[in-house]
Structure formats: C-alpha cells, structure tokens
Design a protein around this nucleic acid. Structure first.
Length: 488
RNA sequence: GCGACGGUCGUCCAGUUUGGUCUAGGACAUCAGAUUGCCAAUCUGGUAACCCGGGUUCAAAUCCCGGCCGUCGCACCA
C-alpha cells in the first residue's frame, strides 16, 4: 500500500477529510469535506501562514466574495482564455477541442476565440469527421472551466471566481487609498476558488472547489532592487531547480548569479521557504522550480513553482508569478478607472508579484510528510505534526476510571480547554488511549495517576519518544504555551 | 470526456463464477460491562454494510441496462 493510500485511509478513519455528499449517489467528483480534525489542522496551517507571511511582512488581509460579476472575468481574460470550443462525436461520444481538431485535420490557423457557428461552418465545409471512428460530429459547444451562476430574477450573468486574486486586484484601489500604506504592499486573502475540472482526481490534490491562500505584492517596477528588508533573508537557503538539477544557494547568491532577477522576488521566495520550513514539510523534499518560457502562464514574466516531493511525484504547492502590470492594466482598461498610485511623488501603475498557494495540497503534503509507522513499537502509526499544527494539542487521561481521578482530570481540562484543543479520554487501557492520540498527531498526553492525588503532579507523555516525565498541574498551562509556540 | 478494472459494516476483506444455504460472515476499530492499572492485554455482550435507479425472476449482494463514485491509461490542467 502506498503512502497516498495510507493517508486516504487515515483521513477517512479519523475524520481529516472525506468525499462531499457521500450519502447520495449523485455526488460529483472533485468535492471533499474537511472533518473535525481536518478543519483544525487547516486552521492551524493558515494561522502559521498569517504569522510567517502576512504579519511578518505587514501585509493586509481581505476576504472577497466568491461570486463576481462578468466584467471582472472579461478584464482578467478568463472568459476568453478559460473557455474552449468542444465538439462531440455523435457515434462514439468522444469529445475534442474543436479548434485543435480543425487545425490538425485541415492545417489552417484557427483563432481560439472563434464563434461557435464559424467553428461549425469550418467543420462542415471541410467535411471533418471523428478522427477515431469517422462518425459525424455534433455542433460545437463552449466548455468554460468557470462555474456560471445567475443572479436575481433577471438571471444576470456572473461567475464563481476561478482564483481568489481577482478580488485583490479589483479591491486594490480602495485598500491602497484607505490603508495609508506605500509600495511595495502585500495584500493577502484566504478563500475558496472554483474550477470545473474535466476530470478531478486524487482527493485533495485536484478539486473543483478548493482553498487558496494568495498574496499579491504590489510594487514599483522601477524599484525592484530597492528593498531594505531583503537583508533579513539574504542568508536563507533556497533549493532551486533549474535545467534538470537542484542547487542550494542563499538568497543573496541567487541574486548575484542572476538565478533570481531582483531583490523583491528573492525576498518573497525566501519568506515563502522560511514559512514552509515551519510546516513540517521536509525541506530536502522541496524545490523552487524555475519554469521555462513555454510553461509560464501568458501573464507571467518570472515564474517559480514551489514544489514538494510526494508519493505521487512532485506536486505544485505555490505558483509564484511576476504578473507585471497585466492585471491592473486590464482592469483599468475594462473599468475605465485609473489604478495608478503615487510612489515617491511619481505616478505609477504598480506591478504585481504573486504567491498563489493551494491550501488543500499543502494539508495533504503535511500529512504525508508527517506520517510514520514505528516498526520498533508494534507498527504504531503516528503523525509527527508540528505541535502548533496538530488538531489536538494534548490529551488528558485519568489512569483509572475512578471518581477522584476523573475529578482531577476535569479540573485540568477546564484549566486548559479555552486556550488549547484538548481531548479527554477515559475509555480503554491507557496504552490504547496514547495510540489513538498519536495517530492524529497529538504531541502530548497528561495522565492523572495515583501520585497526582498526593502531590498534584501529572505524567506528561511525549508522542515521538514515548518518554514520560512528571510536571506540576499548575505548570501544565505554561508548558503548553511554550511547547506550542513557533520557533523564530 | 473516452477506455479498462472495481464499488459489501468506520476500515480492510469473504461471499458474486453456478441466483435460493445471506436473517450477509470475519478481522481490526468502536461502544457497554467485567478484569487489569503507564503503552493497541483478556473475557462477555452490543452498534454497524450489499453505491443509486430500473429490469429479468417464484427468488438478486450475485444476472442485465443506465447513472454516480474510485483506481489506472489517454486527453485536459488559463
């Protein structure tokens, strides 16, 4: 059984995540729910993201709507670029990209944005038939990866956003005006995005409805190397993959060797790497892959993918794109608003460097890199999650199911449960209870035993080492506070 | 979306070939009780499933058709 299967099984058994609407047989692929443990680890992950990126760099966070008007996607290019003409064979039901099919069959250039009836005409004129069975082709239809929704009684056209960043671009002007901030300015957002994938697969790795945590850095394109705060990350080691090889260089070296073109990009890539070093994802199994020209999105001039090695290969977690002025320019043109801002007495249309993170993929990767089977100890399964990411911070367990043990336990629980995620468990043997806790990554367990009755100390048991120590009940709260803090 | 294979308690699996024995069985997990008292112990008892819809039949987990989901391959992935 592969690690992927292990994780899926653990997710199902312990409520990390599971298929949406599974009670009903008409549930669709590509939709997954986070269960109780999954929500907690996701929240903890996002709080770490806020800490290490948003707060550290004094970014501003917003929360935009998921439904956005048609014009937004006209400006962003999604209406045009996100939709393909598709024809189906009436006989064998195969479907084809109409523009590509015509191009292949008749060898003429077909513009992507050709009207449906023109496509149909071309197919008819050239007598194009199904390439696999020679059956007759249907008239063409548009397949757009965006989910269309209708608003109000007039069915006004709108869409579920296919990426969260559009909210940031359309909100930029107001935020910049009212926040009294200067360039460069990071605006961040956590939220859901929606893509009508043709064939979603592999659980959390490819979803139709998914979480993104995006950061858009608005900057003056003439000042990309004017960045004092770069000094704080100049020695941060980046693992960069380029030309089929991975090299480890500091941020400063990467600049000197022109692997990264400017300080601004280098600084944010370094922040991102430092953030991931605190997630429990193994550093040596990550890389910043420099994208070649033909892999880049059309709007991107500099592109790195932050990737992680998983049991199903290298997986893209964060797309880092220098989008230049593509977004603000097109929103400016479509909306007729002037989106220029003042920077040092000069009017400038900001450029954008983007860090677009796929939350669900990160959660999966963290689970996979944390999953261990302890062959020394009866093959116990444990998730070696960072304590601050764990869905349960600590267990509170009475050694015996006696009233005085329970009473002491409840006291301890009430001392802790407003500040930490605590699980109280009195059922079964003590060993079994420890095993259940460590399977969901709980780093500590406090056991109320006979000695507790004498001196108000409890046993603390550590997940990874299984070691035990005694600690005063009154010190437990500060112990947890200290143990759950994130290293600087 | 196409093709191949699959879908049975929370999880994994048996049963499907040859319809009736299935009132659907086991293991692990879970719950209650007993026992033990610091690492998945033991005993007793319990909860819990044939993916959905239609068809064939006296009778369907089992055969047929359609749908949905999953795995893999192809295509797709701004």
């Amino acid at each position: 059984m592969s690690t992927y299967d292990d994780i899926v099984q653990l997710a199902l058994e312990r409520g990390f995540y599971f298929p949406s609407c599974e009670l009903y047989s008409d549930s669709s692929a590509g939709f997954w729910e986070y269960g109780p443990n999954g929500v907690k680890i996701k929240n903890n992950f996002l709080e770490l993201w806020r800490r290490e990126l948003v707060r550290r760099d004094a970014m501003l966070e917003i929360d935009g709507t998921q439904i956005m008007s048609r014009s937004v996607f006209q400006a962003s290019g999604h209406l045009k670029n996100f939709s393909d003409p598709v024809v189906k064979c009436t006989k064998c039901k195969s479907s084809f990209r109409a523009d590509k099919l015509i191009q292949d069959e008749v060898n003429i250039e077909v513009p992507e944005r050709l009207q449906n009836d023109k496509v149909d005409m071309l197919i008819k004129e050239n007598n194009i038939r199904c390439p696999s069975c020679k059956g007759e082709l249907s008239t063409s239809e548009r397949f757009n990866m965006m989910f269309k929704v209708e608003i109000g009684p007039n069915h006004d056209e709108a869409y579920l956003r296919p990426e969260t960043c559009q909210s940031i671009f359309v909100d930029f002007q107001r935020i910049f005006k009212v926040s009294r901030r200067k360039l460069p300015l990071g605006i961040a957002q956590i939220g859901k995005s929606f893509r009508n994938e043709i064939s979603p697969r592999q659980g959390l790795l490819r979803l139709r409805e998914f979480y993104q945590a995006e950061i858009e850095i608005f900057c003056n394109p003439n000042k990309l190397d004017d960045l004092q705060k770069f000094e704080s990350v100049r020695n941060t080691v980046l693992r960069i993959y380029d030309n089929q090889q991975t090299m480890e260089v500091t941020a400063a070296e990467a600049l000197e060797r022109k692997i990264i073109p400017n300080k601004l990009v280098a600084y944010y890539l370094a922040l991102l790497v430092e953030f991931f070093n605190k997630t429990g994802i193994v550093n040596k199994r990550t890389r910043l892959r420099r994208l070649s020209d033909d892999e880049k999105a059309f709007y991107s001039s500099i592109a790195f993918d932050f990737e992680v090695d998983t049991s199903s290969g290298w997986l893209e977690l964060v797309a880092c794109n220098y989008r230049s002025d593509y977004d603000l320019l097109s929103h400016s043109a479509t909306s007729k608003a002037n989106l220029q801002v003042m920077d040092d007495e000069v009017k400038v249309l900001p450029h954008v460097f983007e860090l677009s993170l796929g939350v669900d993929r990160c959660i999966y990767s963290i689970l996979e890199h944390s999953y261990f089977i302890d062959r020394e100890k009866d093959d116990r399964i444990l998730l070696k999650l960072k304590p601050y990411l764990s869905p349960i911070h600590a267990g509170v367990l009475p050694l015996l199911k006696k009233d005085e043990f329970k009473a002491k336990s409840f006291n301890l629980v009430s001392l802790l449960n407003r500040d930490f995620d605590i699980f109280y468990d009195e059922s079964g043997s003590i060993g079994r209870r420890y095993r259940r806790l460590e399977e969901i990554g709980t780093p500590f367990a406090f056991t109320i035993d006979h000695q507790t009755m004498d001196d108000d100390t409890v046993t603390i048991r550590y997940r990874d080492s299984m070691n035990q120590e005694r600690i005063k009940i009154n010190d437990v709260h500060s112990f947890l506070t200290k143990s759950l803090s994130v290293d600087r």
